[in-house]
Amino acid sequence: MPGLIQSIERAAAVIRLLAAGSGWLRASEIGASLGLAKATTHGILRTLRHVGFVQQDPATGRYQLAAAVLAPGTRPLDRNELRSRVINWADPLAARSGEAVRVGALLDGQVLVVHHVFRPDDTPQQLETGALLPAHATALGKVLLAHDALSARDAGAGPLTAYTRRTVTKGAALRRTLAEVRTQGWAAEVEESVAGQAGVAAPIRTYGGLVVGAIGVSGPTDRICDSAGRPRAALVALVREIARAVSRDLAKVGS
């Protein structure tokens, strides 16, 4: 049986200590009170700051528990922050794939379009930022459901609306698909939300593998899929490459 992990215990102790008081504490005070070496204390505090659990006062350098971090309903990454972090990756994805790009996040079981880049052909297109898409019928939604533990477990518990003939409407089938998405690391939709349209999406992760969004391309089925009706391998590779690049950026220390 694996043992307990000491560094997590220590981090929990730091959180307990900060939660007990209401003032700002120095790193040296925290270290002294827990009997931790200076380097260890600093490492733990830097990590907790990186994941947003503690705040540091820029003027004094002292620490405090981040407000409301552990309250239910808080998000690891603000949606507008997600857009500003992803914008310089979404443009090259659209330019290189020649397709429209959307970035989504879960909102009450649906996909909120956080960012939208037009298909680069200068035809008239409507900006869909802020729109909601059905989660079970879209590639973005499947990625998001698959990586949200509660959603993945409960997927298909309620009725699933059919948008086309191809929409997955059976709970068991949807849960099977989500398991596949988790193993292969990407999701597809082929005429499941809109007839004649297909899409591919991959997860955007931050520290510790936490999924904070999904990025994907969509367009006419004959452009997204090969003659066998499967998403083109090169396109899948491109979407995954960009998703990984965004994730690396998000997980960087000091970001």
Binding site: D91, A94, V117, F118, P120, D121, D122, Q125, L127, T129
Partner: peptide
């Protein structure tokens, strides 16, 4: 004109 053809709209409000 050739440069204009490289220009693509990413979003419009």
């Amino acid at each position: 004109a050739g440069l204009r053809r490289n220009w693509h709209r990413a979003a419009q409000w």
